[in-house]
């Protein structure tokens, strides 16, 4: 086979490989991030519940105060207020009632994830620093549906450093990295 013909094959072969790689990487990212949908539509901002009633974020995302990460609420937390058998208490949507009756946890999708190499303490920021959750997270007080997935507007290190500088907090690498 002449060299020029061979080169055509090599070039197209390489192009195909590159294209496949790009598609798979992109496809993986798409699958990772495209679905911001949650298994149960939980309306943070609904006029009848939660935000309107001034239920604090930490009441359900108990890890803000009590844990190492904010966390997603377990059924035990919902059950503190909602009881499917009571008629006079807070309204219990069918999906929640079904979950409470069966005891199967609702498989919430984790929306925000701090990388493992970052030490981020919600307690320091939300409780001690008294920062509003909306400083870093989408403002759920205005959202009827789950917040958009993080790839739209991630919290980058530059944002952390800018705020730390402004508030004269430590910018020592070891302050946040481990």
């Amino acid at each position: 086979m002449k060299f020029l013909e061979l080169r055509k094959y090599i070039t197209s072969g390489v192009a195909v490989v590159l294209l496949l790689a790009a598609v798979s990487v992109l496809g993986w990212r798409v699958v990772q991030y495209v679905s911001g949908r949650q298994p149960v539509n939980f309306p943070h901002a609904s006029a009848l519940c939660h935000v309107a009633l001034h239920v604090p974020c930490a009441a359900c995302h108990t890890g803000i105060v009590g844990g190492t990460h904010a966390g997603l609420p377990k059924l035990a937390v919902c059950a503190l207020c909602h009881d499917p058998d009571r008629k006079d208490g807070p309204k219990c949507p069918p999906a929640l009632a079904a979950a409470l009756k069966s005891g199967t946890e609702i498989p919430w999708k984790q929306h925000s994830r701090a990388p493992k190499h970052v030490y981020f303490s919600h307690y320091r920021h939300a409780v001690l620093g008294a920062l509003n959750c909306a400083e870093c997270h989408p403002d759920v007080t205005r959202l009827e549906s789950p917040p958009p997935p993080p790839w739209r507007n991630p919290v980058r290190m530059a944002k952390c450093i800018a705020c730390h500088r402004a508030k004269h907090a430590s910018t020592d690498c070891l302050g946040c990295h481990r």
Partner: peptide, 25 residues
């Protein structure tokens, strides 16, 4: 509290600095 390291990086004793972070908090 401790990052898992990956291939190609250097690691060493940190005087368990992650414990200091939690104690400081």
């Amino acid at each position: 509290d401790v990052s898992m390291r990956q291939v190609g990086v250097t690691e060493k004793c940190s005087f368990c600095h992650h414990r200091l972070q939690r104690a400081r908090e």
